[in-house]
Design a protein around this nucleic acid. Structure first.
Lengths: 247, 247
DNA sequence: TTCATCGTAGTGTGATCACAAAATGAGGGC
DNA sequence: GCCCTCATTTTGTGATCACACTACGATGAA
């Protein structure tokens, strides 16, 4: 909202950090992709320093893993890690909703309502990215309303870590995603100041979404063969010019 | 356990990071204390680079706050922030104990038993630091046994953020701390594979400890006057040579 | 054809420097 | 005596360089 007229601020590191972070959360990077300092710096048109700091910061937030060599790498969730992530989410996010229940005011209710409608509209026009964005905005706004900064930060870092999974899940999401429709019910529970019900609905939604992905997605430690590395191409436009040499 | 014979590894940044992190968790730094890059670097005998990276990493972990000027500062918990912290802990740590319940083996039980005895011994010899250390070892070992790396990392970062509070609480702790005695009961519940009971006991312990500190400690936003800054002296031996100029 | 070897390009780490902004102190004015 | 102002110092940021190490590709021999 306020990034149209604020060039006088933000250090280079912050800009790099924010851009990488958002790309990560939206699943624009492929799991296993290596993010080297100099490469990022070149892509951003800066010296390696801001890229180095931004990458390290992301790694400290668990948004990136770091190889023993020091190279940052987009995390590849194992099945167990994904389950753990879902369990923590299913514990923490309902807590946040419960805390938010007592604090929401009319204006915020309207905002949430608007986001639900935006999601419906995106669904109607078959815009999966729009759906994801609307759902994300809805939940994050809700969590922010809990006015619990640490809790919010933790939740955000969980989402960040889950982000790369969307890269793998993009095939699935293009079809239809089974979540998001309980948001309207959550909202009415919240309007009735019934935090417990809203929290329970959210927990059910998270569990259901986790089960769904668990059943259709392929994970790093699955017995299957290739982990999708050769499908890296579609991202393109960075600097991976695969050899494509015919054996 | 394995830090006696491994000088050939660890980057300077890692060393700086680890030392600062431990100092933070043990409450060796006073809330509000400023940690400048060049100062830390000088104290560590390195160039500013490793100190800069370590400080930024801690800040990304929420273990440090960073002023708008970029200077790192030891976080000063407000009453609300402390409550929030306790709420998150009371939600997450029982979860970890529940997960650990099914995984503990005899050897781990013995280890936990040993830590409880170490705590009792420290209590007997009136060694508050030993008590804190034993309690911390007990709980962290338990959480580690849950084999949930992300959860463990989150819990550790919560403890890290709580650390500086111990600096304020050191006067109180010197007297007696009312926690820690439920650990033996938790252990027997765990031996009986009753994770739910152990989790409930832990939650009660966390809530009780929070209430206790909430009632006796002074927080940043409390109406009282001085926030204890002038009691910074006891830490000493760094490079704060206060002027002590008589007005 | 296949495998081992070597050399090159790329990597992260850390030091050092220049720069602008902020914090700190002392001094003078009220 | 108190407060405002200004100069000095200290601060974080970012660029650049040197160094050691790793990864990768090409070249060679079996």
């Amino acid at each position: 909202m306020q990034d149209t007229t604020e060039p006088p601020a933000a250090s280079l590191e912050d800009q790099a950090f924010q851009r990488l972070r958002q790309a990560l959360m939206e699943g624009l990077f492929a799991p296993g992709q290596k993010l080297s300092i100099r490469r990022i710096a070149a892509a951003l048109g800066t010296s390696p320093m801001p890229a180095r700091t931004a990458l390290r910061r992301l790694a400290a937030e668990q948004a990136l893993d770091v190889l023993s060599s020091g190279t940052a790498i987009v995390p590849r969730l194992s099945r167990g890690a994904f389950k753990e992530l879902a369990t923590i989410r299913a514990t923490l996010e309902p807590l946040a909703v419960g805390m938010a229940a007592g604090r929401l005011d009319e204006g915020q209710f309207d905002g949430l309502e608007r986001m639900i409608r935006a999601g419906d509209a995106a669904r109607a026009r078959n815009d999966p990215e729009g759906v994801l964005r609307a759902d994300r905005d809805f939940l994050l706004s809700l969590y922010r309303a809990a006015e619990a900064p640490m809790l919010y930060g933790i939740i955000e870092s969980l989402w960040l870590r889950r982000g790369p999974l969307f890269w793998d899940a993009r095939w699935i999401i293009l079809g239809r995603n089974p979540t998001g429709n309980q948001h309207r019910e959550m909202l009415s529970a919240l309007r009735a100041r019934d935090g417990a019900t809203a929290a329970a609905e959210l927990k059910a939604e998270i569990d259901a979404a986790a089960d769904y992905l668990l059943s259709r997605l392929q994970f790093a430690d699955d017995p299957h063969g290739s982990e999708g590395i050769e499908r890296l191409k579609p991202l393109a436009s960075r600097e991976f010019r695969s050899k494509a040499k015919v054996a």
